[in-house]
Amino acid sequence: PDPCYDENGNPRRCIPDFVNSAFGKEVRTSSTCGKTPGRYCLVTEKGDERNRNCHTCDASNPKKYHPPAYLTDLNNPHNLTCWQSENYIQYPQNVTITLSLGKKFEVTYVSLQFCSPRPESMAIFKSMDYGKSWVPFQYYSAQCRKMYTKPSKATITKQNEQEAICTDSHTDMHPLSGGLIAFSTLDGRPSAHDFDNSPVLQDWVTATDIKVTFSRLHTFGDENEDDSEQARDSYFYAVSDLQVGGRCKCNGHASRCVKDRDGNLVCECKHNTSGPECDRCKPFHYDRPWQRATAREANECVACNCNLHARRCRFNMELYKLSGRKSGGVCLNCRHNTAGRHCHYCKEGYYRDLSKTISHRKACKACDCHPVGAAGKTCNQTTGQCPCKDGVTGITCNRCAKGYQQSRSPIAPCIKIP
């Protein structure tokens, strides 16, 4: 059964499955340890006692490297794999990780599980144009005002639902490992309960790429002391699992996304829609404007009615409104000698052959009015009767009427018999 149609075959809203769209995808990072083998140290605490265990990060050694792929590989809590940045990239320098989702997704949450202490400050951004421009999604900082010129935990109103807020939650240094940051895109947004009817929030949760910028490291404050080298080798960003929970964006017109011929992820559009996000009507289905499907209304696209005489049509808003928002399609290039917005009557010089349906290829026949006996070439649409000159008769005006005889004049071909 197709989720996009009910058991009677009627269209209904359908949405792809909820997935972790980051899983298995490549993540670009601005810094990864081990390009040249180097030391890093892990700090553990027991009461007031602090210990450092140092290791080597070496990109050329599978047992010692921490590549970006570990961000989105299978997250095995019993065998954590962690991506790790180089050491001590401290504010104002930052480390950025960027994930391309491959197409538009409606993001529900972004979560990061850390192997290091969580950052003192970090920001999550999204792009809607495949990385051309970026929009802030959320800030985390113990110093919101100072780091991001944002108040901490500002209230979100209907007027600023598309604004990123800054919060100081999840910014403490502990736990030193395993800390989680999870950002829910709709949390605290007033229109979240009515998401279906909120284009603002639908736009807000839509993303093609996610970028996380780690802006400031937490430290114990020993990075500038005399033997600071070991201390600085303990400060880096390390994440074991980056998740981006959401659904492939298909505007309610597809139940799944597939790879197209070029390997791009696209929606498997139903309801006569097309485009990577099912965001327009497919050709020839312009009888009403495209709309996103809702829980109550599938809003499928409807084919133009051209009685099989045209392959193309266009939408006309005026006609649509005049029709009470029923039909706005206008057929283009009616063939088989038909005309009208639905190719539903015969064009000038032709008349209906009522023995055939209007959708028949030969539904319109040429008038065939006599070149001399008829006063014009256009005949009656339904009877085929041509306009005859005085004294002339016949459906094509090719004979003199009773009481008349043919003359030599093409102007008055039939004259009364004296």
């Binding site: 004979r399 003199c400 030599r408 004049s409 093409p410 071909p413 039939c414």
Partner: peptide, 24 residues
Amino acid sequence: EVMPTLDMTLFDWTDYEDMKPVDA
């Protein structure tokens, strides 16, 4: 009684050359 169809060869086109159908 059916009247014969108009006979195109009988018409005098002297003053109506521009009206004369191609096949006449």
